[in-house]
């Protein structure tokens, strides 16, 4: 089963999404900020990262950039999660190295279809 790293600082939202995705059969690992995320991604080698963009310590864009700069984690696809998807946000996400984006509040089915699309594309 695919392993998903969820980077989210809001406890309630993080816990909720973990439960809902775990229920759909994903293997969930979490990080609560950017620094944390870099370490977890290196150690756990997830199949995909769901990255909240407004993070404390190291924000989502910077974290994504560092993930993509590191040989060990560069191959892992990243889906950006933003509260209000203005075009500049979206473009900033792509510029930082994100592979896709989705807007909050999460529609679980749409998010799952995006996760699956990315995992299948890479595994092919």
């Amino acid at each position: 089963m695919a392993k998903v790293l969820l980077v989210e600082d809001n406890d309630v939202n993080r816990e909720m999404l973990v439960r809902r995705l775990a229920k759909r059969g994903f293997d969930m690992v979490v990080a609560i900020d950017g620094e944390d995320a870099l370490g977890v991604a290196r150690n756990e080698q997830p199949d995909i990262v769901l990255m909240d963009m407004s993070l404390p310590v190291l924000d989502g864009w910077e974290t994504t950039r560092q993930l993509k700069d590191n040989r060990e984690t560069a191959h892992i696809p990243v889906i950006a999660l933003t509260a209000h998807a203005m075009i500049e946000d979206r473009n900033r996400c792509y510029a930082a190295g994100c592979d896709d984006y989705d807007t909050k509040p999460i529609e679980i089915d749409r998010l799952i279809s995006k996760i699956q699309t990315l995992i299948h594309r890479l595994s092919r």
Binding site: N13, M16, L17, R19, R20, K23, K104, I108
Partner: peptide, 21 residues
Amino acid sequence: SHEFRTPLNAIIGYGEMLHEE
């Protein structure tokens, strides 16, 4: 609106989850 949205995320998310369950 940002402050509203964060708790709403949780409400809607948990609501959907419980609804599914």
